[in-house]
Amino acid sequence: MTAERFLALIAAYGADARRWPVDERAAAEAFMAAQPEAARAALAEADAVDALLHASATPRVSMALRDRVIASASEAGLKARREGRRWLDRLALALGAGWAVAACAGVIAGVFMTSHFTADAQADAVLYQASLLGVDDTEVLG
């Protein structure tokens, strides 16, 4: 880096190396190390301006402004939704799905068991009918 470019850099961005363009920072720091006398006066001058700039107080955000801005989010169409509530919704959905599965299983089991018990009952009825017929035949045949 030339002395001319170094001075231009300091004049524009100030004495704080963190504010210098990234692609020139290393070269500028190398220049400072190599020619500290040439850099010193310009750095001191720039540092004084930096200090003055830092004296400007940063405005503070009032609670009223903060609240207005947050309220404006819903006015802008953003639906307020809480992250925690979303997990709650998912849990409720999972529980609901569980109940639905259990209910379906109950219905299927019910249908299966009903047909099973009905078959037994029908078999008993047939045997009972057969026994009745058997009694009748004995009576007829004497």
Binding site: T58, P59, V61, I70, A73, L78, R81, R82
Partner: peptide, 27 residues
């Protein structure tokens, strides 16, 4: 997350950007 309406993200965005915008406009 702000675009999804996440209220925590909206508050975080306000905390992150409102001071910057206020400082920009003030100066």
């Amino acid at each position: 997350r702000v675009g999804q309406g996440d209220s925590a993200a909206i508050q975080a965005m306000v905390a992150r950007k409102l001071p910057r915008m206020l400082a920009l406009a003030q100066r």
